[in-house]
Amino acid sequence: MRKVKAEDIKNRVCEAVIEANIKLPPDIRKALEKAREEEEGTARKILEILLTNADMALKERMPLCQDTGMVVVEVKLGQEVEITGGSLKEAINEGIREGYRKGYFRASVVNDPILRKNTGDNTPGIIHMEMVPGENIEIIVLPKGAGSENMGRVAMLKPLKGVEGIKEFVLQAVKEAGSNPCPPLIVGVGVGGNMEKAAYLAKKALMRPVDIRNEREDIKRLEEELLYAINALNIGPQGLGGKTTALAVNIETYPTHIASLPVAVNLGCHATRRAGFVI
């Protein structure tokens, strides 16, 4: 067994949440630059400001957006790893706590959905754990804002609805979301599994860079067709019209039940922030 100290995990999570909040991922930056060249008028002006904002954030080490989100943490834990000096879960939450304090990031988490008292340190995160072969721990953090998260949708379609049903549902979700999720969007789509699996796949889809398409040719085509259809909606940057409503549609799939066709849409804003590391 390889030993990894909880303290080291905490420190890396702390660095990762800071990096994610202040640095726009390079693939998203590139996509925004390309969109700026294609837009004119208000849409172009908005994209220009968003790119300036990204420069300022990195230079001044301030978060891109004041909604520094609830932190989704995706952990791939190698089976050959033994964590010493504390629990993995506590190390991750302590890393979030420290990162949000050091970064002067907003505490955006309440202790209970009904009582709603701010926990003051942006914990707990939402931790997804997967056991994998090997002796490494791979962690991705995704501080997810609520403006976009609130516009997510899940549907349990009839299998006979097929690809057309999936397309219709995704388009409807983006249309209803309008300007609320801060377009240009990254549209995460999960298809298959069951209800919670589809939602989780949609979130995982948002962790994939916008310049990487699904490996399966038919899914890749579906991603491209949906992106084209979404950008024809003329919602545009900030919902004020334009060609760029989404930067990418990322779809993830999983086997499903003979009677099911679950589809989930998880929207990411133009500052879908992520950072990760392997320890």
């Binding site: 908005i46 904002n53 300022m56 954030a57 891109l64 300007s179």
Partner: peptide, 11 residues
């Protein structure tokens, strides 16, 4: 309306 996500710029 102002620009969502332009947190530093607006600060």
């Amino acid at each position: 309306a102002t620009i969502g996500g332009a947190g530093v710029y607006l600060a």
